[in-house]
Design a protein around this nucleic acid. Sequence first.
DNA 1: CAGAGTTGGCTAATGGCATTAGCTTTCTGG
DNA 2: CCAGAAAGCTAATGCCATTAGCCAACTCTG
Lengths: 198, 198
Amino acid sequence: MPRAGLDPEAVVRLALAVVDDGGPTGYADLTLAAIAARAGVAVPSLYKHVAGLPALRRAVAQRCIEQLADALEETAEGRQGADALVALAWTMRRFAHDHPGRYAATQTELLGVPEEATELQTAATRSVVVVARAVGELDVPADRHVDAVRAVRSAVHGFVVLEAAGGFGMPDDLEVSFDYLVRGLVGALASTSASQRS
Amino acid sequence: MPRAGLDPEAVVRLALAVVDDGGPTGYADLTLAAIAARAGVAVPSLYKHVAGLPALRRAVAQRCIEQLADALEETAEGRQGADALVALAWTMRRFAHDHPGRYAATQTELLGVPEEATELQTAATRSVVVVARAVGELDVPADRHVDAVRAVRSAVHGFVVLEAAGGFGMPDDLEVSFDYLVRGLVGALASTSASQRS
DNA sequence: CAGAGTTGGCTAATGGCATTAGCTTTCTGG
DNA sequence: CCAGAAAGCTAATGCCATTAGCCAACTCTG
């Protein structure tokens, strides 16, 4: 019987395929058995390439986080301030639509033992930095900068998560609602200049 | 050997205890084995009272969704408009802090087969209605009402989720950031009166 | 108060999953 | 060509959910 020619990279790629095929719950349903089946290999064979399911999940999450960061950085390219922020928001939402399983992967796995989660944390930082730069180009006071970045991330992430979870029951157009959210948010940030610290 | 005196209600209550003891991942880690251990009963005995793990999870989620709705309704009592909205946001966050496992339960389980998810959907509607009423007391144009409610839910939920997931790396005070988010949001809604439909 | 029937518990068995151990086969480098 | 590393395999273990079938304990009625 010929060999399958697996290696750690190939296993992660197969795992991503499983995630992609699983829709919004693809990451939650990620299983060594599914990967092995797709690879045409017995389950224990995978242990020659990965340390176990938790480690594999972390590797998959890392890829997804980095892919999202790539998309965000590319979006920010050549844009500034409010313009960039709006575009970033839409990129995030598009990513979640195009790769629901991968988006779910970026959410989970953030907490956990410091030794294991550190690489994920730093990978996630890239996305935050992109948003932070755009926020920095608005006239938000310096001592509000972190708050503003958190506000943007919260609003966009919250919308995307609720949308993915089917949390919006009304039939009204979600594109319009998202546009409203993003516009209102960016507008609110722009007018924080003369704000007071609580 | 005396009987344990279980019934469906008792099983759900034990399940909630397991969820509460499990911290943020308490709901994800909810298991029949854990419930049975806590009840001092063999695992299959639980099937005399519940249809299976998925049904139990749904029942637990329902409780949590209703508990949150209760808290929100109580908060809205005697408050109006922006005031109510701010209070509701803080209640949601407090609920997530006080019962992280239960808050997680309110997130999941929303999608799923229509026949099974319907009761959850309607339970979740109660919370949305409370928010919608408060938004209605602001001077948001009628055709923006749904968008505004979605914005509020997104922002608050997003913040709470990111916070719970450890997604905010900066050491800056989260209370302050949440205050900033909520204030900015409500402010933005209030000034939407003369807005344009995209 | 007795016994029938219902009900709630049990053990045993099955199947899916992850993981470990240990064996065998294939590739590769000298 | 052949020795050893690498990559696959089967077997076994353990945890979980679920189903089947058994038995004991309540309950209710005559």
